[in-house]
Design a protein around this nucleic acid. Structure first.
Lengths: 143, 143
DNA sequence: GCAAAATAGGTGTATATACGCCTATTATGA
DNA sequence: TCATAATAGGCGTATATACACCTATTTTGC
């Protein structure tokens, strides 16, 4: 173990950046009553339509049981609804009218903070970052 | 809201990558009994010596109260110890002998998974990723 | 010297995360 | 057909995360 070799840990640095950036997005979205993760979930449902729990979990690159817990506060607030799916095993998750309204309200807040981060990073660097994050996901899952 | 504009959300993509990569590191570190975050905490304490709770939190870019909770399982296992600090407010956190031993045991596991991710990404891309993550942290905190 | 501000840290609560294990249902193949 | 595998999803538990709020102590400015 040389002098802080672990400082270059990909996992640690990803988590660190996720913490810092999430706090910024959470604060920006606060007037909408949504957390960053909740905003992403509603947006995914809005743009990709009703989905079974496991399909939504795959789309979010999220453990299915993580998603189950994450859906609960959204369902409590009536922003999403879960109904029986194609067969008796599956449950389809969909955005409610209230959820769509909340998403519409949150969207400008998201745009503002996204623009702020984009300015801070530079658009080109932001593009590279997103592309490298995608590759990191592939590397982690394909490994 | 055009077609999935939110898919380019820096926060979402950071969190997504952090989830995927953390699962890989957690699985790799499993034989040591440490989670990725715990490994990072022990490594930080090893390389940067005993630190007050707030100083450690700053070094980790972690909320102080997050750190308080995160230290508890490590203290329970006797991997770290917390003692009175310079004045009666501060508490110094240090690695114990047992913690050092555990870190030494985990280090090769970490090196292996870090090397795997580095191969998957390419060393150059990994370097760029780490540098962009640093800038994202600065952008988030300086914003 | 002392009141106010700054610093240090914990607790309550809520969400985020995922592993192991469980049940239920559907699909498959001999 | 029917045993088995595959699929779908929840629950218990544990860590990770951080905000609002609290107490205790120290520092600062007058």
């Amino acid at each position: 173990m040389d002098v802080n070799e672990a400082a270059g840990c990909v996992c640690f640095n990803l988590r660190k950046a996720a913490r810092a950036v999430t706090q910024l997005y959470d604060a920006a979205l606060e007037p909408s009553g949504l957390r960053a993760t909740q905003f992403s979930l509603l947006a995914k449902l809005h743009f990709e339509g009703p989905l079974a729990v496991s399909r939504l979990a795959e789309a979010m690159v999220m453990d299915r049981t993580t998603l189950t817990r994450g859906l609960q506060p959204l369902e409590r607030q009536g922003l999403i609804a879960v109904a029986a799916g194609r067969d008796r095993r599956t449950r389809r998750v969909r955005l409610t009218a209230r959820g769509r309204k909340r998403l519409t309200q949150a969207f400008p807040l998201w745009r503002t903070v996204q623009a702020r981060v984009t300015r801070g990073l530079g658009a080109a660097r932001r593009g590279r970052l997103l592309s490298e994050l995608d590759m990191a996901v592939s590397a982690a899952q394909g490994a």
